[in-house]
Nucleic acid binder design. Sequence first.
DNA 1: CGCTTGGTTGACCATGTTCAATGTTAGTGG
DNA 2: CCACTAACATTGAACATGGTCAACCAAGCG
Lengths: 255, 255
Amino acid sequence: MADYVITGLHPFIDRLSSHSILSDLEKQALSNLSARPLQVKAQRDIVRLDTQTNDACFIVDGIAGRFGQNLNGERQITAFHIPGDMADLHSVVLPNATSALQALTDTSVLLVPHTELRSVAARFPGVAEAFWRECMIGAAMLSQWVVNVGRRDASTRLAHLFCEMAVRYGATLDQAGSYRFPVTQDHLGDATGLTGVHVNRTMKLLRNAGLVRMQLKEVEIMDWNGLRLAGQFDASYLGMRMRETQPLRLLDLAL
Amino acid sequence: MADYVITGLHPFIDRLSSHSILSDLEKQALSNLSARPLQVKAQRDIVRLDTQTNDACFIVDGIAGRFGQNLNGERQITAFHIPGDMADLHSVVLPNATSALQALTDTSVLLVPHTELRSVAARFPGVAEAFWRECMIGAAMLSQWVVNVGRRDASTRLAHLFCEMAVRYGATLDQAGSYRFPVTQDHLGDATGLTGVHVNRTMKLLRNAGLVRMQLKEVEIMDWNGLRLAGQFDASYLGMRMRETQPLRLLDLAL
DNA sequence: CGCTTGGTTGACCATGTTCAATGTTAGTGG
DNA sequence: CCACTAACATTGAACATGGTCAACCAAGCG
C-alpha cells in the first residue's frame, strides 16, 4: 500500500548464508524483496499481542524484545532481536501474534510483506529451507533460555545472557571486549526471570568478580573465559557451526 | 539400512492437516513415507546430545522428554513429546542435536529418515510449509514454557502444565476429565524448574484446592475452569485455532 | 520377602523478592 | 548556566518462596 522501496536486506541474506547454502539465483530473488521502513519509539509495540501480521520485521537499528505475559501483568522477555535479525520470520507461517514485539529503544525496522517472502519460498525450496532453519536456530536459543531461567541461579543466568549477546553482536573477544546493548536493568530482569533490583545486586557481584561491567548501555567484558565459565556458556546452539556440517538443500534431493 | 516398513504415520498427517491445508496428492506422498519401528526402554536416550541424527522420531506410544542441561548435571525438560508428535522434525534442518531426547517410560517410536522428509518437502512446497508451521507451533509452546518458568510461582506453573497436557492429549473436558501422563514428580520438577520435593508439596495444594489430582500416572482434573484460572492458561498458542484462520499455501502464491 | 523406585513429610536454610529510600545522569526550559 | 524533572541505578531491611537434607512410607517385582 504505502511507499515500498527496494532496500538493504543484505545482512539478512548474509545471515541465511551463514547456515544455509544459497545459489546466486536464490540470493538474487531475496535481494529483490521489497520492504518499507518504519521508525518505532522506545517502549512502543511493533507487533501487538493477538493481532494478525502481514509483514516480517527486519531490525535495522536499535533493539526489540519479544514479550510473554502473565495475567498479573508481569512480563517475560523471550527473545532479544538485534540489528540483522528478521524478528518475525515465523509469522510467515503463524501470522497470529501470540506474543508481543516491542522496541526497547528507538528502533528502525524494515517491514517485509509475507506475500513476498512466501513467494520466494514457494519458488525456491532452498530458500524455504533456509527460512525454516533460521527459525529453528531461534527455537534453539529459546530452548537454552528455558534452561537458563529454569535451572541456573541469578549470576549464571546473567553471565549466560551476556555471553550469548556478545556472540550474536559479533563482539571481538580474545579475552576482553565490549558491545553496545541498549537495555535497562529491568529489561535484563524481564529476560532472566529476576527483578530489576536483584539484577542490580547480581551485576555488582559480576563486576566485583572482574567478569563483566555495564555502563551507559555498553557491556564491557573484562574476562571472557571467566564469564563463559560463570555462565556455563557453550556457543554451539547459536548455529555458528552450521558451516562445518555442510547443509543439504531440498532441491538437491528433489526427484 | 534396516527393515524399512510402510507404517502408520496417519496421526502425523492428521496433525499437519489440523493447522495446514494439504492436497490429496500431498497427503498421499506423506503416507508413502517409510519408517522403521524402535522400542526404547524408560530412561534411555532416543537422541543423544551432540550427535548427528539421520531420522525424525515419531512417537507411537509412551512419552519422551527433551532435556537441556546444566553443567552441574541438573536437568531441565524443555518439551514433553506424546503419541502423535513428530518429536524431532526440526532435526531435518538442524541435524546436530543440541539437546537430548529421552524416553520417560517404555516408548515405541517410528524413525523416519530425513532424506525422505526432505524429498517430500522439496517436491511439495505446501508440505514444506506444513513442516515449518508444525515446528513453529512447537516453538510457541517453548515460548510459553519460558514465561511459565520465568514468571509464575510453583502452583501456577504446574497448573499450566496440566492444562497444556490436557489439551494436547485431547482429554474431553467439560468441567472435569482425566488423562494418562506417565511421568514422575521428579520429571514434573525438571519441566517446571522446581525440585521433586516441592512438586510434591504443590501437588498437595492443588489437590486440596480441588483442582487436580494425580495417581498412578493418571491426571485427574477435578475442576477444569478452576485449573485454567490457577494456571493462567489460554490455549490459543497451541495452534488449535489455525483452522479458523484459513492457512495459505506456498503453492498458491508461486508465480 | 527384600529391594528398588517413587511419593510424602518435616525442620532448617538460602536465594531472590518487596518496599522504600537515595543517588546519578541526561535532557529541558528559563 | 542552572534548576527541575524523569528515568534509571543502587542500597538496605524485612520477608517469602522454594531448596536441601533426611527420614519414612507405599507399591511393584524379582
